[in-house]
């Protein structure tokens, strides 16, 4: 073996030392595993779907539905609300971090906090990792250039929070708070982010044609979903009873007996609590709760889960 060949061998050996950790690959495999498909059933289902579409097309072809006011807003939400493709997922997180918050609007937020964190860990200033898709380019002068998977990126460190922004198919941001090495953690999380069309979010309720955009909780059976209605009423559906402030009196809402306070109303409807609050005394809270359409089987299986 001559010098060149030996150098080639040494160089390749050195390159092998940079082999990435298998964790992200294993996690991605776990998420993306394809189940064996029943070709016959798929064919039958496909033919049935085509038949239904043709039939529906014939029936609907001479109808015209004017656009509603909600269409424009709904169009801004990826996937039109109920089943939203979250599109991106990290494949590495620090040990013990679980997902407990999602916001699906023009931006899609996913937040992971330490397992067992109590209260509202995504707002209390404690440790958290957030992945945000969509939004605007960062502004300001304190951003430093870096790279994520070979793409140009910008990172800023403020008050022990590292924010890392890069442009993949969408603008992506990783925000890491409460780590002594927040910058390094943010880079490592960002490097593990992959597009994943199979990760979807299904909202828990609908109100006036719009699905709930906030969902959080500590475990699949302990969750809460929320939307703001008419810019003044905060509407919630959740598994735990709300804390009502002030004197209460009975009220009939959704055909059941609920409780009315000065600025809010709450009712237990089957398996979940539905309530609404406002800044002032308004009957809009009762109207909002009456209008809530529950989704039969909301997907909360992601709450409290890690990778």
């Amino acid at each position: 073996m001559n010098d060149t060949e030996q150098l080639v061998k040494d160089a390749l050996g050195k390159l092998a030392e940079r082999t990435p950790h298998p964790g992200p690959t294993l996690n991605a495999l776990r998420r993306k595993r394809k189940r064996p498909r029943n070709v016959f059933l798929i064919s039958v289902a496909g033919m049935a779907a085509v038949a239904v579409l043709i039939f529906a097309g014939v029936i609907a072809s001479d109808r015209y539905t004017p656009p509603s006011g909600n269409d424009a807003a709904a169009a801004l939400i990826p996937g039109n609300g109920q089943s939203v493709a979250l599109k991106y997922a990290p494949h590495w997180l620090p040990t013990g971090y679980v997902e407990n918050f999602r916001l699906v609007d023009r931006e899609v937020h996913r937040v992971w906090v330490p397992e067992g964190a109590k209260g509202f860990p995504f707002t209390d200033g404690g440790p958290q990792i957030a992945l945000i898709a969509g939004g605007d380019q960062p502004e300001g002068v304190d951003w430093q250039d870096t790279t994520v998977r070979g793409l140009k990126a910008k990172i800023a460190l403020r008050d022990q929070t590292a924010e890392l922004v890069w442009h993949a198919q969408d603008l992506l941001k990783v925000s890491v708070r409460g780590f002594p090495d927040a910058r390094q953690v943010a880079l490592q999380v960002a490097e593990s982010v992959r597009a994943d069309s199979k990760v979807v979010h299904r909202a828990a309720f609908k109100l006036d044609g719009r699905y709930a955009d906030h969902t959080w909780g500590s475990k699949p059976a302990d969750w809460e979903a929320m939307s703001i209605w008419k810019n003044q009423v905060s509407v919630h559906v959740g598994t735990l009873p709300p804390q009502l402030v002030g004197d209460t009196k009975p009220v009939v809402v959704r055909g059941r007996e609920g409780l009315r306070t000065e600025k809010g109303v709450a009712v237990f409807d089957g398996s979940v609590w539905i309530w609404a609050t406002a800044e002032s005394n308004t009957d809009l809270v009762v109207e909002a709760v009456n209008k809530v359409e529950l989704v039969p089987s909301p997907d909360t299986s992601w709450i409290g889960k890690g990778l």
């Binding site: 390159l15 092998a16 082999t19 690959t25 991605a28 490097e191």
Partner: peptide, 20 residues
């Protein structure tokens, strides 16, 4: 085999991300 495969792919592609 995942680690040996990743190692081989890293050397082959010269790019850890592409290897993954």
């Amino acid at each position: 085999q995942v680690t040996p495969l990743l190692r081989y792919a890293t050397v082959l592609t010269c790019d850890p991300h592409l290897a993954q």
